[in-house]
């Protein structure tokens, strides 16, 4: 994509532990354009969250970004010095966490925190900053934003806190927001409110989102593009509709089939056998090989992520529709 705001190229984040080097992210590439939402989907241990944290350079020791480039508006974040990275964080790229209390300070009023966050990057009077904060709360659909400025985080419900966290992430109109499972802890009716809000914000403000989640159904209506991760690598990516209509990687297909609402009631669900491999003992070749119904000997070599039709897939035996 030429008009990409964020493009990640061959990102590698490894963890150096006593058990050996864990390649949590191993050669991940993707890009997001203006106002688009990329759903980064995977199960626990797939490296989806580490990818998100790596973009903001928030990976702590023993983790380390060991390779690749993170190009944000053409500037490589991986090469920035810590001070420049600190200035970039919050202003050009910001983050929403699963737990909004990672962003919010429990002992400060919402307004105080937001004003401080604005003034950290812009020289502006307190009154103007407060007005901006108020507008940001209104933007994410918080009713009575003026009053909310004067309450503490514990006065708000989980859903409201997450909205405030999103409002704070949006304060400086960042080019990209990385969201790590932000609706996983919320009830479905609240989740659906927030997803609708985020979709509207992306369309209105042109902010690009990387939405990290384990839930394929969430991204199916939210994301423009999908990248499915397994054991530190992207195994399938493409436009949401295209990927979900005809999943080509056996893992994506298995994941979709194991969602109960896809199956006939009371019938056995399609299940992926075995469990997610430990990063310390990855199988040789394709990491999905031991669990894959289509695996053959050639799968002992690592397949590349190659274009196939209108999506990309990393598989020696992709599922190809007979009809088309």
């Amino acid at each position: 994509m030429s008009d990409a705001i964020l493009s990640v190229e061959e990102l590698q984040t490894h963890f150096f532990t006593r058990a050996g080097v864990l390649k949590a992210v191993d050669g991940v590439s993707f890009s997001v354009g203006k106002g688009r939402i990329l759903g980064l989907v995977g199960e626990s241990g797939s490296g989806k969250s580490v990818t998100g944290y790596s973009i903001l350079r928030l990976v702590d020791a023993p983790g380390k970004i060991v390779g690749g480039r993170i190009l944000l508006k053409g500037k490589d974040l991986a090469a920035l010095d810590p001070e420049a990275m600190r200035r970039t964080r919050g202003a050009v790229v910001s983050m929403i966490f699963q737990d909004p209390m990672m962003t919010l300070n429990p002992v400060l009023k919402i307004g105080t925190q937001m004003v401080a966050a604005i003034k950290a990057h812009v020289k502006i009077s307190t009154a103007d900053a407060r007005k901006q904060a108020r507008d940001a709360l209104a933007l994410v659909g918080i009713p009575a934003p003026d009053e909310r400025l004067d309450v503490y985080p514990h006065h708000l419900s989980g859903g409201m806190r997450q909205r405030v966290a999103i409002a704070i992430a949006l304060l400086h109109k960042p080019a990209v927001i990385i969201a790590d499972e932000p609706t996983t802890a919320l009830d479905v009716s609240i989740q659906s409110q927030i997803l609708a809000e985020v979709r509207r914000l992306a369309d209105q403000t042109g902010t690009a989102f990387v939405w990290v989640t384990h839930d394929l159904s969430v991204v199916s209506s939210l994301a423009d593009d999908i990248a499915v991760m397994y054991a530190g690598r992207i195994v399938e990516s493409g436009e949401t509709g295209a990927v979900l209509a005809h999943p080509k990687h056996p893992y994506t297909a298995g994941l979709m089939a194991s969602v109960p609402s896809q199956a006939e009631r009371g019938q056995k669900l399609v299940q992926i056998k075995g469990s997610t491999p430990s990063l310390a003992h990855l199988p040789e070749g394709c990491s999905f090989r031991p669990r894959c119904p289509r695996a053959t000997d050639i799968c002992k070599t690592m397949p590349a992520l190659l274009p196939l039709g209108d999506t990309k897939v990393r598989c020696h035996h992709p599922i190809v529709e007979h009809a088309s």
Partner: peptide, 11 residues
Amino acid sequence: VPKLGAGRGAF
């Protein structure tokens, strides 16, 4: 409930 294949923006 988010549904697989509900299509973009279907909330």
